[in-house]
């Protein structure tokens, strides 16, 4: 018992996390983990991740009413009569239609796994529109009321263009872009030196509340979060600290 555990390999740590070890190997690895908290921490993370992965895919493991027909149809025998085969075809067509349009078939991760994540959309929109000299926006800030009304209508929820003047930014204007599978509002701001920032607002199907998260693509930094019916993403070629300040201002203005 007092024997120091022999060295444990990287693979054995994985095998332990995956519950693939025989009982005596398990004891040996456990002794090792007791003495090596860093490895214990990693193993613990893998185990948590395993659970998260299983949770993520669990909703896909379901039976569908057409499964039986699918099995019998494959036999090409008389078990499937003509009208049933039409039903199967119709169900398949409906399924594909549903998948394409995002309607009727619930996607179990929301649009999560398949749709472009909002931070990517935000970063792409920024790199496309921020360098524009003549047409960075569709509606300029001098028609702000119209802009906000129009975008609210298209998003199906009331939005405002946050006032970021306290952060040294003025509104340039905005445009409608596709986001989160429907309409998104891209608002553009700039500081005195002409440095631009975008705020992307997108309607999400269900109310959510998330933490703030950073994403960096090349020089472009995005800070994004979800709050209530909207997803937010603030993008700029700037420091995290600046984005954090801007996010704070936006977040506060969308409260209440």
């Amino acid at each position: 018992m007092n024997d120091k555990p022999k060295t444990v390999s990287e693979y054995e740590l994985h095998a332990y996390a995956d519950d693939q070890l025989a009982a005596d190997d398990m004891v040996r690895v456990e002794q090792w983990l007791d003495a090596h908290p860093e490895d214990a921490e990693r193993v613990c993370r893998w185990q948590e991740q395993n659970i998260a992965i299983r949770d993520l895919y669990e909703p896909y493991a379901l039976s569908r009413s057409e499964d039986e027909a699918l099995l019998y149809a494959g036999h090409g025998k008389q078990r499937l009569n003509a009208s049933k085969s039409r039903q199967v075809a119709a169900a398949a067509a409906l399924f594909i239609l549903g998948t394409l349009t995002g309607l009727s078939i619930p996607s179990f991760l929301g649009s999560a796994a398949t749709a472009t994540p909002i931070y990517e959309q935000a970063s792409e929109a920024y790199s496309l529109y921020a360098p524009e000299v003549r047409h960075p926006v569709e509606v300029w800030a001098d028609e702000k009321d119209h802009l906000v009304q129009w975008l609210s209508k298209r998003l199906g929820t009331k939005i405002t263009a946050p006032d970021l003047s306290a952060d040294g930014l003025s509104l340039v204007g905005g445009r409608l872009i596709p986001a989160e599978g429907s309409a998104g509002a891209l608002l553009m701001y700039e500081d005195k030196s002409g440095e631009r920032f975008t705020v992307l607002l997108a309607r999400i199907p269900e109310n959510e509340e998330t933490a703030f998260m950073f994403d960096k693509r090349g020089p472009i930094q995005t800070l994004y979060w979800m709050d209530g019916p909207l997803a937010f993403a603030i993008t700029g070629e700037t420091s995290r600290e600046t984005l954090r300040q801007l996010a704070d201002s936006c977040y506060r203005q969308f409260q209440g």
Partner: peptide, 24 residues
Amino acid sequence: DSIPAENAYPGDPLERRRLAAALD
């Protein structure tokens, strides 16, 4: 080597998306 996975908010819907995107 040995980069810790950050998973600050396991139940967070954005975390799920990040994991889904990472797996994809």
